Simulated assay, not measured.
Amino acid sequence: MRTDPNPISLKELIDKCKKTGAYINVMSPVPKSFFKEVTQLKVISTDVLSNAIADIAFLLMLNVSRKAFLIIGEL
């Protein structure tokens, strides 16, 4: 999660997203070149200001945390 109020450059965004499997965009449009660079993303959610998409994103995060908890419990 990025908390810096200044806009992120496209290069910095691509570099950060190459290290993750999900991207949730809140407001700004993303150019097509972004998606050509970060092909490993499994979850891409844009316009999360709509309630339905926000609910789905939250459910996905809950599912991931539940699986992580089960894995840790097996250790």
Rank of each mutant, 00 (worst) to 15 (best):
M1W: 05
R2S: 11
R2M: 05
T3W: 12
P7E: 12
P7F: 12
I8W: 13
S9E: 11
S9A: 11
S9L: 07
K11V: 13
K11D: 15
E12F: 02
E12H: 07
L13K: 10
L13P: 02
L13M: 05
I14T: 12
D15E: 15
D15F: 00
K16G: 01
K16P: 00
C17M: 13
K18M: 13
K18C: 13
K18L: 15
T20R: 15
T20I: 07
G21F: 07
A22Y: 06
A22H: 07
I24M: 08
I24W: 01
I24F: 13
N25Y: 00
N25R: 10
M27P: 00
P29C: 07
P29E: 13
P29N: 12
V30F: 05
V30E: 03
P31F: 09
K32W: 00
K32T: 08
K36V: 03
E37P: 04
E37W: 03
V38K: 05
V38F: 04
T39V: 11
Q40Y: 04
L41C: 07
L41R: 03
K42R: 05
K42L: 04
V43L: 08
I44A: 01
I44D: 01
T46W: 00
D47E: 10
D47C: 04
D47N: 14
D47R: 03
V48Q: 00
L49S: 06
N51D: 10
N51A: 11
N51S: 10
N51W: 04
I53N: 02
A54Q: 06
A54Y: 04
A54D: 05
I56R: 02
F58L: 14
F58Q: 03
L59I: 06
L59A: 12
L59E: 08
L60G: 06
L60Q: 10
L60Y: 06
L60N: 08
M61T: 11
M61P: 00
L62H: 06
V64T: 11
V64A: 14
V64R: 14
S65K: 15
R66D: 12
K67C: 08
K67R: 14
A68H: 08
F69G: 12
L70Y: 07
L70N: 13
I71W: 06
I71S: 13
I72D: 12
G73M: 11
G73H: 05
E74R: 13
E74Q: 12
L75I: 11
L75Y: 08
